[in-house]
Structures are given as structure tokens and as C-alpha cells.
Design a protein around this nucleic acid. Structure first.
Length: 542
RNA sequence: GUGCCCGUAGCUCAAUGGAUAGAGCGCUGGACUCCGGAUCCAGAGGCUGUGGGUUCAACUCCCACCGGGCACGCCA
């Protein structure tokens, strides 16, 4: 709000000074001793105007001071302009935000899809998956708030070798229950969860599948494992408060002929060739990468091929843009997918891949490598159980996705103040409590006064509350959801400082109390909304 | 070897190219018999991996190197 206002004033003032082409400049909230806001525009103009930054700043500041709402604009340092706003405009901003409860929301105009959490359904979600799931969900919530109509989708890799391997591993476990000494297949899944599943089959079907490994058994065991896995994965998602709009089956792309259609299109475009008995796609025609196999020499299709079909399908569904969230291990897949899109005549901008780094787990003093296949992992369920949903979600959201975060399991289990989620929630609970107190004191909350002398702590609170929209916008640009947790922590801190210094509900001074209570209301709204965007609860008391 | 990500306080992490690099935890010492002490205030703790460069200004951008991670499959 203030930013827009200042931006316009600076542009207008410069125009009055005869400056035509105005560079993209910044408005920042500087150290409070300098002012309310500051701008660097004078530096950026120095070269084109062939004048010293301070000189430009000084004439600009004189223009700015003509604005009603600017109390002062002064030149500082090598050419910053520090601006102090009037109390009236602060009051005005408060009114506006109070009238528009969801002032940070933008009407949706763009149809986008986010695909994330698309792990192989070959084992329970691990803590590693937790990061992607929460990250994806929070991104979706933020995009939804800023002008996007968002669909969440999870791709289910229910076709192919891994699922066959999973079924076979389950069949082996099942046989082992009958005392058969059959070893797990090489690369088989070693996790305990398959033993539990095998017991279930034994209970229900007895020895029906004993010793017989054929296509029927393959089908049965693969499907059984798959369905069980999906079911338990959905339970976990449910617990975490994540809801997908659609679960998309890889297999369906084979059944409905999309995969063959892709082959046909590519063949017609002369983008396929045979080598060593396999069928290759000319990735190198489009990007600097090696050609890739789409059909193996045994006739089966690769994951790459179905993924091309999948993205073709997404395109046909009419999204303006689709986002894929992948772990860093899939980075190599990006150029190939872009090549495939181009081959199909789809703009490469249609697909945006967001990469995040993986989570390292610290157990005791050891850093553990997680592997679903080897069965060495800590499940997301265990974490949720130990740390709770709020802490789990907040924790995953609070790291820059590019960072290789270290997850200390023992710490998470302690439920200590280590997690800043409590800090933010406490501010919310505290404000709620103030309103209870105000009621007990029979304090009448009237309307905002027409004029008011703001304390620095009060102005700080208003300024930071107004920042929410631009924080959310930055996130839609660089996907760093931790900007939101940083913001909420700063907001909570600003509030706590304010609270410690000033009495809010004071029957002796109803006018001031009204203003401060309104200020609390604003703060509480934004904290609640911010936490809501993170999927974290905002308790009235704790 | 090639490409991408990371390297910031003892630990975990912040910092749209801006002024004195910040939080939390841990450590030391404090806080109103008025609204929640899960809070607040103060202190100790840093050659932002190393060396160059661009810029009025570099943790941030560019180059080289060092260290860690990931990827370079007829795996997904």
C-alpha cells in the first residue's frame, strides 16, 4: 500500500524534474533511525543524468516533500532518500486494511497445475518426501492467494519395473511366512512393511499363491501392494492436511493410447531412430543433451516415454502453465522433458520445474542415508507422531528449498522451543488473550480516532502488516516459501516488542485502547492468515 | 571429467546488489505486584570457504580454485 503510493510519487516527482526514462528502483524499509522508507533511485539515475547521486537525491527529496502524506524526505549517505510518512497516512492505511479483511488476496485469473509428491508407490512416505509434500502444498496455497487457480496433482507410477519388483518382493515375503527360503530379488524391496502386508495376504488367502510365480501372481501381488501403499499414503496426506485434486495413473496413459499416440507423432516428425534394438528419441535435436531410449529392446516403454505422454495430456487439459516439483536427483530429467515438449510443438515455458534439495537425517550423532529399497528410512508418519502436524509442516516450510537441510530427529521429538512455530503461534494466542482481557475489563472498542500520535512500535507493526502481499509475490517468483516463515517470525517479534512496551487494554484511555486493539486485530488476522497459508493452526490459547 | 545446488556465529538457518551481515537454540547477566515470562532487554560469539574481477556499493553478480551434495542408465 505504502509502497505503491511512494512508487507513484517518486515517478511523478521525477517527471516533474524532467526525467523521462526511470529505471526500476527499490523501496526499502531501512533501519528505523533513517526513516520509514528509503529508495535507491538516485544511484540508478546518476549515470544517465551525469549527475552525482546526492545532487539528484536532494532535488528529488524537495519534490517529494510537496506530497501531503510525506512528513519529510532527506538525503543520507552517498545518495539514499529517507522518507518519513505522516501519522495521518498510517491511520488511513489501518482503516483500509481493517475494511478489507483479506487485503492480500487476488482474484484468480490463471489456471495452473502443480504436480508434486509423485514418489514411487513402493514404500511409505519418508521424511524426505515430507519436505516436498509440505513445500508443494504451501506453494499451492500461496499461488492460490495471488491470482492463480491451482490444481494439485500426484502422478502415480503404477506401471513399469519398480511395481513388478515390489510385487515380486511381496510374493517372496509371503512365501517366507511359510518357511520357504526364497531370497528377495536383487534390487528388491527390503522394508518391513512388506512383511506385514504378506501376513495380511496369508490371513486372507492362506496358501493359495504358495510356490507359484506366474503372470497371475505377478498381477495380484503388484496390485495388492500398490493399493495398500496408496491407501496408506493417502492416510498420511490426510493427516498432514494435504489434499490432491487428482491422482493420475501412469498406466492409464498406456491403456488409453496416449503413449502410442506420442510415438506416432514423434515418428512422423522423424525424431525417432533405432539403435541396438531400442528406439531412441532425438533429444539432441532440441537441447544440449544425449538422445534417450523411449522403447527398450524388449519392447517395453521407458519412464521417459510415459512422462512425455503425461505432459502432453496436461497440455491438452488446457492449463496455462504447469509446475513440477522434483527432488534434485531428477534435475537431469529437465532438458529431456523440455526437448520433448518442443518436439510436440508445445512452448517450453508451459512447464516450469522447481527443484528442491534433499533432507539429511541426523539420528543421534549419525547422518543417515535414506533408501526405500534398502528399508533404511524414517517415515513421515513417525515424524508427525513425534513432532505433531504444526511443527512438522512449519519445519519443512522454513528452509530455503535450495538448501541441503539437516533434520535432527532427536530434536524434532523433543517438541522444544527449538521450533519457531511456537513463537509465532504464541503471538496469536497472546493477542487472543488480550481481547478476552479487554472484554473482562468491559472495554468498549469504538471506531478509530481521526488523529493519533503513533509510537515507533505501532508504526513498525503497521508497516510490517502491509508487507504480506509483496512477500507472497516474491514467493510466486522464486518459490522460496521460507520467506513466509521469516516474515511471520518478524511480525511476531514486532508484536512481542510492541506488547512488552505498551499497555493495550487500558480503561483509563479508551481512545488509545481502541487504536491499539485495532492494531492487535490486524496483527492477529495476518498471523492467522499466514499460518493458514502454511497449513499450521493458529491457536487462541496454548 | 561435464552440468546444477550448497558453503554465513559453537549448532540449525536468514539477509528483492544497499547504510553497522541478522534470528533461534546454547552460554552470561537482567525485566514493570497492569493485558499470557513459550515474552522482552543487554552481553559474548563473524576475514560471509580461498583468491581475483565488475560496481558509487558485493554474502548476493562474473572468473578460477577448495570442500560437500545431486545428476550424467535400455532406473524412476
Amino acid at each position: 500500500m505504502f509502497r505503491k503510493l511512494l512508487e507513484n510519487s517518486i515517478t511523478k516527482s521525477l517527471n516533474r524534474l524532467g526525467v523521462e526514462s526511470i529505471p526500476i528502483f527499490k523501496i526499502e524499509i531501512p533501519d528505523e533511525n533513517f526513516g520509514d522508507y528509503s529508495t535507491n533511485v538516485a544511484f540508478l539515475l546518476a549515470k544517465s543524468l551525469k549527475k552525482a547521486p546526492r545532487e539528484i537525491a536532494s532535488s528529488l527529496s524537495r519534490e517529494l516533500e510537496k506530497e501531503q502524506y510525506i512528513k519529510s524526505a532527506t538525503v543520507a549517505g552517498p545518495g539514499f532518500i529517507n522518507i518519513i510518512l505522516t501519522d495521518e497516512v498510517y491511520l488511513h492505511a489501518m482503516k483500509e486494511v481493517l475494511e478489507r479483511r483479506f487485503f492480500w488476496k487476488v482474484k484468480p485469473e490463471t489456471n495452473v497445475q502443480f504436480e508434486f509428491g509423485s514418489a514411487n508407490p513402493t514404500g511409505p512416505f519418508t521424511i524426505g518426501h515430507g519436505r516436498q509434500l509440505v513445500f508443494g502444498d504451501v506453494l499451492c496455497r500461496i499461488f492460490s492467494a495471488r491470482g492463480y487457480r491451482v490444481k494439485r496433482e500426484m502422478y502415480i507410477n503404477d506401471a513399469g519395473r519398480q511395481i513388478r519388483l515390489l510385487g515380486h518382493s511381496l510374493w517372496v515375503r509371503y512365501n517366507q511366512l511359510f518357511g520357504k527360503e526364497i531370497p528377495l530379488p536383487e534390487d528388491g524391496y527390503q522394508g518391513e512393511y512388506l512383511v506385514d502386508m504378506a501376513k495380511e495376504i496369508k490371513r486372507e488367502y492362506g496358501n493359495k499363491f504358495l510356490d507359484s510365480w506366474d503372470t497371475n501372481a505377478q498381477e495380484f501381488f503388484s496390485n495388492f501392494a500398490l493399493n495398500k501403499m496408496l491407501q496408506s499414503m493417502k492416510e498420511t496426506l490426510n493427516k498432514l492436511g494435504i489434499e490432491f485434486d487428482n491422482y493420475f495413473s501412469e498406466k492409464s496413459l498406456v491403456i488409453d493410447g496416449t503413449v502410442n499416440k506420442i510415438l506416432e507423432i514423434l515418428r512422423k516428425a522423424s525424431l525417432l531412430y533405432e539403435k541396438d534394438g531400442a528406439l531412441w528419441f532425438k533429444v539432441s535435436n532440441f537441447v544440449n543433451d544425449n538422445d534417450k531410449v523411449v522403447l527398450r529392446s524388449d519392447g517395453t516403454h521407458t519412464y521417459f516415454l510415459t512422462d512425455i505422454a503425461y505432459h502432453f495430456n496436461k497440455y491438452q487439459r488446457g492449463f496455462d502453465k504447469v509446475y513440477n516439483i522434483w527432488g534434485s536427483d531428477h534435475m537431469g530429467h529437465i532438458p529431456r522433458m523440455k526437448a520433448a515438449l518442443m518436439a510436440l510443438g508445445i512452448s517450453e515455458d508451459f512447464l516450469e520445474v522447481i527443484i528442491h534439495q534433499y533432507v539429511n537425517i541426523k539420528k543421534g550423532k549419525e547422518i543417515v542415508k535414506m533408501s526405500t529399497r534398502k528399508g533404511t528410512f524414517s517415515t513421515l508418519d513417525e515424524l508427525i507422531e513425534a513432532a505433531g502436524i504444526d511443527a512438522t509442516r512449519y519445519f519443512f516450510a522454513m528452509f530455503d528449498p535450495d538448501t541441503h537441510m539437516l533434520f535432527d530427529l532427536d530434536l524434532a521429538k523433543k517438541k522444544s522451543n527449538e521450533n519457531p512455530v511456537f513463537y509465532v503461534q504464541y503471538a496469536h494466542a497472546r493477542i487472543s488473550s488480550i481481547f478476552r482481557t479487554a472484554k473482562d475489563k468491559n472495554l468498549h472498542i469504538g471506531i478509530l480516532p481521526d488523529s493519533y500520535n503513533f509510537e515507533p512500535e505501532e508504526k513498525r507493526l503497521i508497516k510490517i502488516v502491509l508487507e504480506l502481499p509483496s512477500v507472497l509475490d516474491s514467493i510466486t517468483e522464486d518459490y522460496k516459501v521460507n520467506r513466509l516463515t521469516n516474515y511471520l517470525e518478524a511480525l511476531a517479534s514486532t508484536f512481542h516488542v510492541f506488547y512488552n512496551k505498551h499497555l493495550v487494554a487500558d480503561p483509563e484511555n479508551p481512545r488509545r485502547s481502541t487504536l491499539r486493539l485495532k492494531l492487535c486485530e490486524l496483527t492477529r488476522n495476518v498471523i492467522a492468515d499466514g499460518l493458514q497459508l502454511l497449513g499450521v493452526s493458529a491457536p487462541e490459547s496454548m
